[in-house]
Design a protein around this nucleic acid. Structure first.
Lengths: 138, 138
DNA sequence: TCAGCAATGCAACAGAAGTGCATTAATTCA
DNA sequence: TGAATTAATGCACTTCTGTTGCATTGCTGA
């Protein structure tokens, strides 16, 4: 928890109970989670508090948002060195159709894509769907 | 309208007023539209009818669904030869952050992506965000 | 013509995202 | 330290989207 406090302080946001808990939850889950999952994990926390907590994290680039095509926004802790705001960090996400989990494939980058003349690409989102390694074993 | 009727008949779905209108709207817009846009275009049509019309089109591969990351599902007419159901047709979409329009870049394919060992990719969705050609001129 | 099926319109629901506002907690600074 | 200020929280509520149930209407084929 000490380290989490430091991370929050480094980002110049106030250290509060919900922020510590949400951060720890994201850290322990080590995957991509929806707001509703965080909600369920903390029975007695208020939705809008969790919502605003995640938004604060997002603004401070502590988490990044992922749209994996399930219709629900997901969030994941930025890995050390994750520059999700920068063009060069266009890593991709994998959504498993069996367990419904989404994973960041941090070390798989999106290959450079050409866009037609006149278009300027600023950002890219690539979600691969299929079966993940765990589900593949069964 | 005659041609639209033929297309519907070819797909063995009944020719009805709402289907003709929705098809024509999609055809004239020639871009990627949300259900709510169709709704607004036909003031007096019922939402669920339009919803089911689009779903029918989707099942019959007349339109394909696009998740452009705005949180709203979009639909576009399949181009002649669009094999949106087939792996090899992983074309990508471009979302303009200025005019908020999404375009199919039909002739730009998603380059082959490697996934980690144990993962099986079945499908991919790639949305590039940036500024489109029209907005770039201004 | 009429039975049967498909399409429509209306109402309603669920889930997620987002906001306003009063209350509470943390900080700042005199 | 303690008052003033600013930020975070909790609650209630709204909006939007997707989706479904059901009764009604309309089409079609025997």
């Amino acid at each position: 928890m000490k380290e989490i406090e430091e991370i929050l302080e480094r980002n110049k946001i106030r250290v509060t109970a919900s922020r510590l808990l949400v951060y720890r939850y994201l850290y322990e889950r080590r995957s991509v989670v929806a707001l509703s999952e965080i909600e369920n994990a903390f029975g007695r926390a208020d939705r809008s508090t969790l919502y605003r907590t995640i938004k604060t994290f997002e603004e401070n680039r502590i988490v990044h948002q992922i749209d994996d095509g399930t219709g629900v926004l997901k969030y994941a802790l930025c890995e050390p060195g994750c520059n999700c705001n920068i063009k060069s960090d266009l890593h991709l996400h994998f959504h498993c159709n069996e367990c419904n989990e989404t994973k960041c494939l941090t070390d798989h980058k999106i290959p450079p894509i050409e866009v037609p003349d006149g278009f300027v690409a600023e950002n890219a989102n690539l979600v691969i769907k299929g079966v993940c390694d765990k589900c593949n074993l069964n």
